[in-house]
Nucleic acid binder design. Sequence first.
DNA 1: ACGCCCGCCTGTAAGC
DNA 2: TGCTTACAGGCGGGCG
Length: 279
Amino acid sequence: MPELPEVETIRRDLEKGVVGRRVKSVEVLGKRSVRRHESPSELVDMLEGRRVGSIRRSGKYLLIGLDGDVLLVVHLGMSGQLLWVKNPKEPLADHTHVLVTFTQGGQLRFVDPRTFGEMFAIPASEVPERFPELARLGFDPLEDVMSWVRFGELLSRRATGLKNLLTDQGFVAGIGNIYSDEILFAAGLRHDRLSSSLSSQEVRRLYRAMVETLSDAVKHRGSSLADEQYRDIFGETGDYQGQHQVYGREGQPCRRCHAPIAREKISGRSTYFCPRCQV
DNA sequence: ACGCCCGCCTGTAAGC
DNA sequence: TGCTTACAGGCGGGCG
């Protein structure tokens, strides 16, 4: 499940390899991935002939800017992959839904077994009407640097459990199930602590833990778990999973205090934490 | 305002 | 062996 570090890894690789290239052709093999369009040909017509100008990220969304006022939005959902192949004749993986071929060679493939992900193109000038989710996203933990005092003000405005808050894209954008658990372990805070109950020292620990955990994960090119689909655009796995302190480690000893890592269901999601280190 | 559940999906693995 | 069931969880919507 790609979260901020995985999407940021993809963004950086695309920035190096795809910016400046011109779209030669687009082929839609799976309609569900382009469900915002009335017809797949709408997406095809918007992209063909355009040159890629910028690759940005907002939370877990990839924003690919093309000339002629076009924005291509990609969300990988649970199982989406964006893969770069040099030779478009390479055999297609199962669940390949969209092919974007470039004039100078090379092809981007959108692969997504569970089809929670999506891809759509809109006029950049119509983002507010056509892509309202963007405006509803909270701050970006790596892009939007703020003082921990300011962070504490935002926390105290809400009275909700920390895990629910960290995974609320409207509060902070880009954090999902894996990294919320890792951040809360690094901060020494339980998932069910009330956001408005933190001391100023705890606020500072949480802010630091959030920024450091996510930037470390970016350095390691994200997390690829056994039951997970994440690959970078070259089909390679990340290696941050080796740094995980709690996620997926139920019953194993805490790396800090050796108490067994606990697992609880929070809003239907597995939540891992150390019952001794996190208070 | 918030917690929590459902539906959307498919691959994998455990259980009977 | 083969079927059924649970699980993985991002996100929007709905309900209490």
